[in-house]
Computed example of a mutant assay.
Amino acid sequence: MGGVSTSTNENRLAADPYRALPRVQGSERGSLTDAVEEALRAAIVNLAMEPGMMIDKLAVCERMGVSRFPVSSALAKLAAAGLVEVLPQRGTRVMPIVMHDIRQHLFIRSALEVETVRALAASCDSATLDALDANLERERDAVQQGLRREFHLLDLAFHELLLNAINLPRVKEIVAASRNALDRARRLMASPERHAHTLAEHARIAQAIRARNGEAAARAMHDHLDEVVAELRRFSTERPDLFRE
Rank of each mutant, 00 (worst) to 15 (best):
M1P: 09
M1Y: 13
T6E: 15
S7E: 12
T8D: 13
N11W: 10
R12M: 12
L13G: 09
A14V: 09
A15D: 08
P17S: 03
R19W: 03
P22T: 07
R23Y: 09
G26N: 08
R29N: 13
G30E: 13
T33G: 06
T33P: 03
D34S: 08
V36P: 05
E37T: 06
E37P: 09
E38N: 11
A39I: 08
A42C: 05
A42P: 00
A42E: 14
I44Y: 09
L47H: 04
M49Y: 14
G52H: 08
M54N: 07
I55T: 02
E62F: 11
G65I: 08
R68Y: 13
R68W: 06
R68M: 09
P70I: 00
V71G: 05
A74G: 07
A74Q: 02
L75C: 09
L75P: 07
L75D: 10
K77R: 14
K77F: 13
A81E: 15
G82I: 07
V86Q: 12
V86W: 09
Q89G: 06
R90I: 09
G91P: 11
T92Q: 04
M95Q: 11
V98Y: 11
V98W: 10
H100E: 14
H100L: 12
H100K: 10
I102C: 15
Q104N: 11
F107D: 08
F107Q: 12
I108D: 03
R109Q: 12
S110D: 13
A111S: 14
L112E: 13
L112N: 06
E113G: 02
E113C: 05
E115F: 10
T116R: 07
S126W: 05
A131M: 07
L132N: 06
N135M: 10
N135F: 11
N135H: 07
L136Y: 05
E137C: 02
A142H: 03
Q144F: 10
Q144L: 14
G146M: 10
L147P: 01
L147A: 15
E150D: 14
E150I: 06
H152K: 09
L153S: 05
L153Q: 15
L154S: 08
D155A: 10
F158R: 06
H159T: 04
L161V: 00
L161F: 07
L161G: 05
L163T: 04
N167E: 15
N167W: 02
R170I: 05
A177K: 08
A177L: 13
S178W: 03
N180A: 13
N180F: 10
A181R: 06
R184K: 08
L188K: 06
E193M: 06
R194T: 07
T198L: 06
A200E: 15
A203D: 13
A203E: 15
A203C: 05
I205W: 03
I209D: 00
R210A: 13
R210M: 08
N213H: 03
A217T: 02
R219N: 00
R219M: 02
R219C: 00
H222T: 02
E227M: 14
V228Q: 14
V229R: 05
A230F: 15
A230L: 13
E231D: 12
L232W: 00
L232Q: 00
R233W: 14
R234M: 11
S236W: 06
R239D: 01
F243P: 05
F243K: 01
R244H: 11
